[in-house]
């Protein structure tokens, strides 16, 4: 890659990262696995003057049983999430979604915190977090706060963190025995979804959409319909409610809207069949 020139800072703790962010302000970018940032820098679409490498903050790489939820360090690689026995048992949707990210080399480098912070509407993990009703812990110079998934994604590739904050932990409620499904429709295995649907049936329904708006999106219409007792088929008809599907060569708005309905129906059917 031939990026613009930049300064490189490697840090070994979250505090050091926040210190560097405070020092360099919005000219700096955090780099975890680098699989979102580096492609943008390669095309010179992102030209940070300082790259703060948090890839060595090893104490933020963990998956822990925290009682009612599972706590995952922000620097945990997708491969670790994908293969975690704890997640496979208690939050299988998240483990499965991690297995659908990119290809194996991406999954060995990319991190859950990096993917969520990137806030890409076409990514798998933001949708999973929305459907699961999870949250992230965010740290800044003034301490730590919890941000719900619903409040995390605010615009196209834009999260609600301040310039001097970083995600340190991801929290997902346990959904042991819940029905779940992730429907990812794409052309090639390593691609982003043209449209994706994550669903959790755990008493109430959590349903979210990939690539149906400029941000990761909760399928509010579907959830509402299911809450009021609608059939899966009827609920699926409301798949695109509140969406503003992007248009590209893979799909125009009409096609994406149709796909969302088909995939929501498939997701609900599969999730239902997995309930225990």
């Amino acid at each position: 890659m031939i990026p613009s020139s930049f300064d490189y800072v490697a840090v070994d703790s979250a505090d050091a990262a926040i210190g560097a962010l405070t020092e360099h302000g919005d000219e700096a970018k955090l780099m975890a696995g680098g699989h979102s940032l580096i492609p943008l820098m390669k095309f010179r679409l992102a030209n940070p003057t300082v790259v703060i490498d948090i890839g060595r903050v090893n104490d933020l790489s963990y998956i822990r049983d925290a009682g009612d939820h599972v706590a995952i360090g922000a620097l945990t690689r997708h491969m670790a999430v994908e293969t975690s026995d704890l997640l496979k048992a208690d939050v299988p949707l998240l483990a499965h979604c991690a297995s659908q990210v990119g290809d194996p080399s991406v999954r060995h480098r990319g991190t859950i915190g990096g993917s969520l912070a990137h806030a890409d509407a076409a990514s798998d993990l933001p949708a999973a977090l929305l459907a699961l009703g999870g949250s992230v812990m965010v740290k800044g110079p003034n301490g730590e706060r919890e941000v719900k998934a619903d409040d995390l994604f605010v615009g196209f590739l834009e999260n609600s963190l301040a310039d001097d904050e970083m995600i340190t932990e991801v929290r997902v409620p346990k959904a042991t025995g819940a029905g779940w499904s992730y429907q990812k429709f794409n052309r090639r295995a390593q691609d982003w979804a043209i449209v994706g649907v994550a669903a959790v049936l755990n008493g109430s329904a959590g349903v979210s959409l990939v690539n149906m708006a400029s941000t990761p999106l909760r399928a509010a219409g579907v959830e509402e319909a299911l809450a009021s007792g609608a059939s899966h088929a009827d609920a699926a008809q409301r798949a695109a409610d509140g969406g503003s599907p992007p248009e590209d060569l893979n799909g125009d708005a009409e096609y994406r809207t149709h796909l969302a309905k088909v995939l929501v129906q498939r997701a609900l059917t599969e999730a239902e069949s997995r309930k225990s």
């Binding site: 052309r187 295995a189 691609d191 060569l249 893979n250």
Partner: peptide
């Protein structure tokens, strides 16, 4: 050209 990169120009991979 609207799809000059491998992001949009779909060269199939072994899985396809």
């Amino acid at each position: 050209c609207k799809n000059p990169s491998f992001l949009d120009y779909l060269v199939p991979s072994p899985t396809e």
